[in-house]
Design a protein around this nucleic acid. Structure first.
Lengths: 149, 149
DNA sequence: TAATTCGTAGTCGACATGATGACGATTAAA
DNA sequence: TTTAATCGTCATCATGTCGACTACGAATTA
């Protein structure tokens, strides 16, 4: 039983970490796609939502690209999760007939349970920031900048 | 962004709750499929794993079917989750090149994070049992039997 | 004006999920 | 012993999602 095939969260964290390592330059979608082993359109789709959420900014034209809007230590993985996985649930719910008492009871319980699980997951993710994911030792200047902010 | 389409956990909980309501009779896959709005083969696949885990028993032949192996109050949803979602992860991981320091750091962090999230989710699920999902007021005899065991 | 980059729509293949049909093995009951 | 019900499992199919890819327009800078 394979896990989820949705890699948007994983790619988002990768890209944000990359941007955290280049605090002074805008990075193009093509460059980020190369770094993550995906493609530019996909990167733009993921980053587009993060831009709408105020996590990154984008600039078109030559020398344009993407940059973090905030310091890496101020972006939690919970923030990223909420943006990227918006509206998704931890487990799926099969269709139930409203007439079935068992089905109705289960639907209510599982829905409430999923809410609790989501909160639990987000709380755990909020304990880690983008700065925590940056490679130790590499890019000392970037780490210093992250710490300063 | 749709959630997971995997309904096995949801169907498993539904079926177990149904069985908890019929403590004296074996229930056929066909009947359970009708109750869950799925089909018999699918029910057998899900219940087959739960039987291997010692949660339910099956008997072939006329009058055969499925029954709970333990009292509903002794089966936590965490037990069901561990059986049904075995090997799955909370979030997907995109492929990373081992040569990339950012990628390696991220892979390690996310893998460890996923372990923590899984534990967190299972702990939350362990707080609810099949008996807790049974409809209140309905099937008083079954609830009494669940309480006795 | 030319070049670069984002924004977005559309299409495509790969893959997972469930539904369905088929058929043999097992078991209870007539 | 025969019959019917049921599980066990395989194969196949339809559907939906995900992500790659192409294409083209808009925005911006040099």
């Amino acid at each position: 039983m394979a896990g989820p095939t949705n890699t948007q969260f994983s790619v988002a964290v990768h890209v944000l970490t990359y941007l955290a390592g280049m605090p002074h330059d805008a990075v193009s979608s093509d460059q980020l796609a190369g770094s993550t082993g995906t493609n530019a359109v996909y990167v733009r789709r993921v980053l587009g939502r993060l831009r709408d959420a105020g996590v990154v900014v984008s600039r078109p034209g030559p020398g344009g690209g993407w940059q973090l809007e905030h310091a890496p230590a101020e972006i939690t993985l919970g923030d990223v999760w909420r943006v990227v996985q918006e509206g998704s649930t931890i487990f799926g719910l099969h269709a139930v007939e409203p007439a079935c008492p068992v089905g109705a009871s289960i639907a209510a319980t599982l829905t409430e349970l999923d809410t609790r699980l989501t909160q639990s997951v987000e709380a755990e993710l909020d304990r880690t920031t983008v700065a925590d994911v940056m490679p130790v030792g590499a890019l000392p200047e970037a780490r210093a900048a992250a710490a300063r902010a």
